[in-house]
Amino acid sequence: MADTRTITVNVNGEVHTNTINVRKNLIDYLRDDLGFTGSHVGCEHGVCGACTLDINGETVRSCLMLAVQADGTAITTIEGLADNGVAGDLKKSFAEKNALQCGYCTPGMLASAIEYINAGGNADKDKIRRHISGNYCRCTGYQAIVEAIYSVAENGGN
């Protein structure tokens, strides 16, 4: 039994091996140990959605996952999102609709939006609203975010 452990993760295509304290959350490991500060800490209890990111193709709350649990996984943070495809379309659409103000919820919001489109989510504003209802945004009032996702969904998701 130990309170440290060595892990290897692939973050945005880079492979990292580190020995870390087992109590460290994934978000703190990404930010403090690897310098991927694009994902944000909002509540550290899994409610605000700011730290939502993609692990092996699924969204997770990186404040509710130990870094050691990410051993052997492939992680995509906002820094690793492509400028084309679904992620690229969403980024473009977010900029056009001003679907972000302070930008703090944006990494988590984009992760949820990508998940929605990739799962075949259609251009239905109520469904989009429900899907992103685990991501808190204090600035926008959500409408611009919903419209940004909607316009990508409307164009067939890609």
Binding site: V22, N25, E44, G46, L64, M65, L66, V68, Q69
Partner: peptide, 22 residues
Amino acid sequence: GQSLMPMMNFRVSQPDLLVDLN
């Protein structure tokens, strides 16, 4: 961990050993 981790982050839960079943 979706309930246990928040409780640990709040230090409401402070186990000596965590057995990860994943």
